[in-house]
Amino acid sequence: MRTISLHAVDGRPTARDVQDVRSFACRWTAAGNTIPSPDAPRGDPEWKRFLESWWMEVARFDAQEWHNALVPLVDAEEKARSRAQRAIDKAGARWSALDTAWAWHAAHHQYARAFHTARGLVLLWLAAAEARASAQASPPQRLSADAQALYEREVPEAERIPALDVDRARDTLHHLDTTHQTNKAIAAETLLLPAVHASQQPAVAQPAPAGVRTVG
């Protein structure tokens, strides 16, 4: 995810650049525009155009600041998601390997370790997703309607901050845990097979210990 530059000021603008009307007025006149007279009536077209441009400047600044402040959180979330997905795939491969493993207990231990690693990384992904959701919900990170419209108009969709998807991380964690519970049941049944097989064999009479009388 890349930062964007929507603001007229070269480099990274500060809040003072937007709040200072004189700064905007300098850019306004540099672009060949005329600053309306303070004595002009409120309905004067030039004043209206000046104020509309000023508010658009504020919206542009807000959209840029909103996007660029969230970029590190988006990157952290995406890296956490990629690491979690690779770990999940590895755990799945470890489980599949049990079908042909000669050293079954050792192979199952490798699966168990892979599962717990994957689960830990999914939790980190969930934490990163929740951190971005929390940041976007806070007042400084909410865009006005004008800034949102400008952002969607001037920033290509592929370069915009992606939509929140905390549920995806939660669903992945739930699916991982559910799959592991199923795998545990299968593994337990597999390990019990010798005992079950033995219990189904006919009983063989054992000779009584020396000196012990039997009944019958």
Rank of each mutant, 00 (worst) to 15 (best):
V166I: 10
M1T: 09
E189R: 15
V155H: 04
L73F: 06
T172Y: 03
A158H: 11
A195F: 12
Q206M: 14
G92M: 07
R83T: 06
A208W: 08
W102C: 06
P139T: 10
S138T: 15
R142Y: 05
A40C: 00
P202E: 00
H197K: 13
S96G: 15
L124T: 11
G43L: 06
E157F: 05
R42P: 07
P194I: 14
R22H: 08
M56I: 04
W102G: 10
R119A: 15
A40G: 03
A118R: 01
A76F: 03
A69Y: 01
F24P: 02
R81P: 01
D39A: 13
A147F: 04
R86I: 06
E152A: 10
P41L: 07
R153Y: 07
V122L: 13
K48R: 14
A169Y: 08
L164G: 09
L98K: 11
A15E: 15
W55C: 07
H108A: 02
R12Y: 12
A91S: 15
V155Y: 04
G216A: 11
S138V: 10
W125Q: 13
L73R: 05
Q201I: 04
P72C: 01
I4H: 07
A63N: 00
A63R: 00
H108P: 00
A131E: 12
A188C: 08
G43K: 06
A84E: 08
Q64R: 01
E65K: 05
F61R: 00
V204K: 05
N68K: 08
S144T: 15
L98D: 10
V58N: 08
C26R: 11
V166P: 04
P209S: 11
P13F: 14
H174Q: 13
L164A: 08
H67A: 01
W28R: 00
A127M: 06
F115W: 14
D171H: 06
A101D: 04
H67C: 01
P194W: 10
R170F: 12
P202T: 02
A59I: 02
I4Y: 04
S5D: 14
M1Q: 07
Q148K: 07
Q201V: 05
A147P: 02
D39C: 01
P207C: 09
